[in-house]
């Protein structure tokens, strides 16, 4: 199964040297799990369908474009039963991007509080990890973990849609 999905991820766009761009090593490298216990528990409960609420807490918007691309017919995340929803109240997973700015701190916390448990928080991109190049700014709080607990990180600036899809499927235990 894993092999099948990996080869599907790679073969989905007909590019000449995609192999190089999305090598197995690179894909595996893009995910960092920090809270295994919560992820195991989550997998047990959400076996078939997962609803994601995306929250931009201060990104440059490149991460949003790549997450958006997951919905296009090329990556088509819906075929795995994964949907993006309009409200945190409908969500199982928060996908958070950007360094958290001071002006977004409260909105992010409220969004987290509105998400019913069990829930996972996945931080996307370099800025969400620790603030990235904006670390230490007077207007930035820092990485997502400074505001809400994070279960896993998907790396990249921004991560490619293939990497996002791989990361999410890995977290869900699908591959």
């Amino acid at each position: 199964m894993q092999k099948m999905i990996l080869s599907w991820l790679k073969g989905r766009i007909a590019t000449k040297d995609l192999k190089e761009l999305v090598s197995d090593a690179r894909l595996k490298d893009c995910l960092e799990v920090v809270n295994n216990a919560s992820i195991e528990e989550f997998r047990r409960l959400s076996r078939r369908s997962v609803h994601i609420r995306e929250v931009d807490a201060g990104s440059c918007n490149a991460c949003e474009l790549e997450i958006n691309a997951l919905n296009n017919p090329v990556y088509d995340i819906e075929r795995f039963g994964i949907h993006f929803v309009a409200s945190p109240r409908h969500a199982d997973m928060l996908l958070v991007t950007g360094p958290v700015t001071r002006n977004m701190e409260m909105a992010l916390r409220k969004t987290y509080d509105a998400t019913p448990e069990p829930r996972l928080v996945v931080a996307v991109g370099g800025c969400a990890r620790d603030g990235g190049i904006f670390k230490g700014s007077y207007a930035v709080v820092g990485g997502v973990e400074r505001v809400i607990p994070v279960d896993a990180y998907i790396r990249g600036c921004p991560p490619r849609p293939q990497e996002l899809l791989y990361g999410i499927l890995r977290i869900l235990g699908r591959i």
Binding site: D56, G58, S59, G98, P99, T101, R102, N103, M104, A107, I133, F134, S137, Y138, A139, V140
Partner: peptide, 23 residues
């Protein structure tokens, strides 16, 4: 707006002109 204010113009002032292009 300005929910995403990160202090980019101030960040620029800490850099030299080659570094600024990455920001």
């Amino acid at each position: 707006l300005h929910y995403k204010h990160k202090g980019i113009e101030k960040l620029m002032e800490t850099l030299d002109f080659n570094e600024g292009c990455r920001v």
